[in-house]
């Protein structure tokens, strides 16, 4: 065997397991969803082969789920950003070096603990025996917090704040401090320095955070389920219903395809903004 052929074999062998995995559990399933989305619901539920766009034309039937997701996901991501930016800024530029690692870890660690448990904590707090019970003690009766859009929004911010802080912190932390000094030396006031130096240079991190949080929110299931109690319904909740309860697989597949299209749009838009503002397609991750 020639050295080149040998080299190619090694490369193929290294990539084979991952390739097989990606093919059988990503490419093939997504192909199946695409095919199903063009089919019809069988009488007993499930899928019956057909070639129709009815499922896509029928998407407005789940309009409420789309509306809730498309309103609460961006609002939630914006609320996360509003809290995350100042937090990341303080951590990267104001906290003394020796405390930084611990404080940053404390911000990020909650994201790696169980989302289910963290959402449950708010279910506990917002439920009748939690905060409303405290209000009863001071005479305010029948305060209802759980199963409202506000509760879902709170759960979203709570769940995804660490994920928003992480990339913004990374991009602020590697910002060249000499640029800030230069800006000040040239007579720019702190606000002007922030707007013309710090903010644009941190845009890759901001856009990575916005992309990650928005993408996860588009597919969110647990938070609306637990804190919205079936009243504030997301696309993810509609999908669970369509696949596991009403068993309308073709319609559910069409919604899943629409969801993936939404995710791709979010990625393209955020990458484009990051590129325009900071001149880089590179997103700041870990």
């Amino acid at each position: 065997m020639s050295p080149q052929a040998r080299k190619n074999w090694v490369t193929a062998a290294l990539l084979a397991p991952a390739g097989i995995w990606l093919f059988f559990f990503l490419v093939l399933p997504f192909g199946a969803i695409l095919v199903f989305s063009l089919g019809e619901r069988a009488a007993a539920g499930g899928y019956q082969p057909a070639l129709t766009l009815d499922n896509y034309l029928n998407l407005p039937a789940r309009g409420a789920a789309f509306l809730n997701t498309l309103v609460l996901a961006p609002v939630g991501a914006a609320a996360c950003l509003a809290l995350a930016y100042p937090a990341a800024w303080f951590l990267a530029l104001r906290v003394p070096e020796r405390h930084r690692l611990l404080l940053v870890s404390m911000m990020i660690v909650p994201f790696w603990t169980s989302m289910l448990v963290r959402t449950y904590a708010w279910m506990y707090l917002l439920g009748a025996r939690g905060i409303p019970h405290l209000f009863e003690l001071i005479g305010i009766e029948n305060l209802r917090l759980i199963n409202t859009p506000g509760a879902v929004l709170l759960g979203i911010v709570y769940g995804y704040l660490p994920l928003m802080i992480m990339p913004i912190y990374v991009s602020l932390e590697k910002l060249d401090r000499r640029l800030l000094e230069a800006s000040a030396d040239l007579g720019a006031r702190p606000v002007a320095t922030f707007l013309s130096v710090t903010l644009p240079l941190s845009m890759p991190g901001v856009m990575t955070g916005v992309a990650l949080v928005s993408i996860l929110l588009l597919g969110e299931y647990l938070v609306p389920q637990m804190l919205g109690g079936g009243k504030v319904y997301f696309i993810g909740n509609a999908l669970v219903d369509l696949f596991l309860q009403s068993r309308n697989w073709p319609f559910g597949s069409a919604i899943a395809v629409a969801l993936v299209v939404g995710v791709v749009c979010v990625l393209l838009v955020t990458m484009r903004i990051a590129w325009k503002v900071a001149g880089t397609r590179q997103m700041d991750l870990v």
Partner: peptide
């Protein structure tokens, strides 16, 4: 191409991965 596939495996929402795997395996 490989980078794109890996990125897709990371960003496709879990709910879609769950459904798609269910549908494909059922078939």
């Amino acid at each position: 191409a490989a980078d794109g596939l890996m990125a897709a495996a990371i960003v496709v929402p879990g709910v879609v991965i769950g459904i798609a795997t269910l549908v494909a395996l059922a078939g």
